[in-house]
Amino acid sequence: MNIFRLAGDMTHLASVLVLLLKIHTIKSCAGVSLKTQELYAIVFATRYLDILTSFVSIYNTLMKLIFLGSSFSIVWYMKYHKTVRRTYDRDQDTFRHWFLMLPCLLLALLIHEKFTFFEVLWTFSLYLEAVAILPQLVLLQRTRNIDNLTGQYIFLLGGYRGFYILNWIYRYFTEPHYVHWITWIAGLVQTLLYADFFYYYFLSWKNNKKLQLPA
């Protein structure tokens, strides 16, 4: 564990807590894409299949449980909670996210580190996470108003993978044979997808204006 990875995990944790806080306290999920939340639940479910078989550390297992629990409860809130579900703008959140999953699965079957059931699903979760934010970014461009909790959620979610990139660079230079091209490229693509969001988020913060993504 290094400071970059810890910062990344804490930023990731903060992003899901900000979203849970928003949904739980103001009982609203306006501006949040259910499609992205469903993709994230699938990302964690396919990433953490080894939670019962391989034990890395208390921290690792605890964080996996938190990410699994939070992502599935966010999906539950948005789909089934009587008050929250009414605030979900389903006619705006129309990204066909199942079309994202198939290419990720095919790519995982083609490009992976080891051709085992767990490893292919783990690689699938990596590719899926890289593109999981797309429905949310599309929704953001459609709904003009972005409340700052949703903006913070996306900012933290994008930032965590940026810290992970620093972690990979650090581990590459400090650990012999630490090379994971697949993880690195997927992580880089994921972070680059946030580039324009980061730009407009920074502008809105600098000019102290509402966050507006160009249509």
Binding site: H12, R47, D50, T53, S54, V56, T116, W122, Y164, T183
Partner: peptide, 10 residues
Amino acid sequence: EEEYFDHDEL
């Protein structure tokens, strides 16, 4: 080597 699942990152 033993078929283990060596992902130590989240």
